Amino acid sequence: MAMWKKFQILILFGFSSLTCLPKPEPSLLGVLVLPLVTQTSSNFAIESSSPTNGETGVALSPTITIIMTQAVDTTTVNTNISCAPSCPSLSGGVSNRTITLTPSSALTTGTTYTITLNQNIQSIFGLTLGTNTSFSFTTL
């Protein structure tokens, strides 16, 4: 009979300890571990620009912003952007998907400028533009 009592106590203890276990909660690990950079498109191209293609009345000292469909490999930008007719020296930089350019001095009044991105500009995922890509704007 003592053996039966020990068995009952063991069973009772086993079931009572199960109710003391914390209820499993959904893990936040899947939410907290996100990729820092994602490929937003299967192609690499200009998504938008400011000034926009064909825009008129652009200020003589614009900040030119080009947003790409993917993050840009900064090492491929410097020698692969041109401006025609010849712009004052363009300076700027790249931040993720955005290329920002500023002319070193004022542009010429009433002139249509074409910004060309060379086909060799590359995304961080290894895709290139594939063809030279341009957009134009006209100053005040």
Rank of each mutant, 00 (worst) to 15 (best):
I67N: 13
A59C: 10
L60Q: 07
A71H: 05
E47S: 10
D73G: 04
I67M: 07
N53W: 03
L32M: 10
S27N: 09
P62G: 07
T76W: 06
L36E: 13
A59V: 14
S41C: 08
V33Q: 08
Q39W: 01
V58K: 04
L28P: 02
P24I: 11
S17K: 03
T38I: 15
L60K: 07
M68W: 00
L21H: 08
P62T: 10
S48V: 04
S27G: 09
S16L: 15
T75Y: 06
I64V: 04
V37N: 11
L18P: 11
V33H: 07
L28W: 01
T79F: 10
T56Y: 03
T65I: 11
V72L: 03
S27Y: 01
L60M: 09
T69S: 12
L29S: 13
L29Y: 08
I81T: 08
P35I: 05
T65P: 03
K23Y: 10
C83Y: 09
K23D: 10
V37G: 04
P22G: 00
L21F: 14
L34K: 15
A45L: 08
V72W: 00
L21V: 13
T74Q: 12
P22W: 04
I64D: 00
L18I: 13
E47L: 13
G14R: 06
N43I: 15
P51D: 02
L28S: 08
S50N: 11
F44K: 06
V58L: 03
D73C: 03
I64H: 00
E25I: 15
P35D: 05
S48K: 14
N78Q: 13
T79C: 04
M68N: 01
V31P: 00
T69Q: 04
Q39S: 15
L34A: 13
T63W: 02
S49H: 04
E55C: 02
I66D: 03
V37P: 04
P35W: 03
T74M: 10
P26A: 09
N43M: 14
L21W: 12
S49Q: 05
G57L: 07
L28Y: 03
T56Q: 11
I64P: 00
T79Q: 15
I81C: 08
C83N: 01
I64Y: 00
I66V: 11
N53D: 12
T52I: 15
Q70H: 07
T38E: 14
P22H: 00
E55Q: 15
Q39M: 14
C83W: 05
L36S: 14
S61L: 08
S61G: 07
T52E: 12
T40Y: 13
C20E: 04
E47Q: 10
T75G: 11
T19K: 09
P62R: 08
T40R: 14
D73F: 05
P35L: 07
P62C: 10
L28K: 05
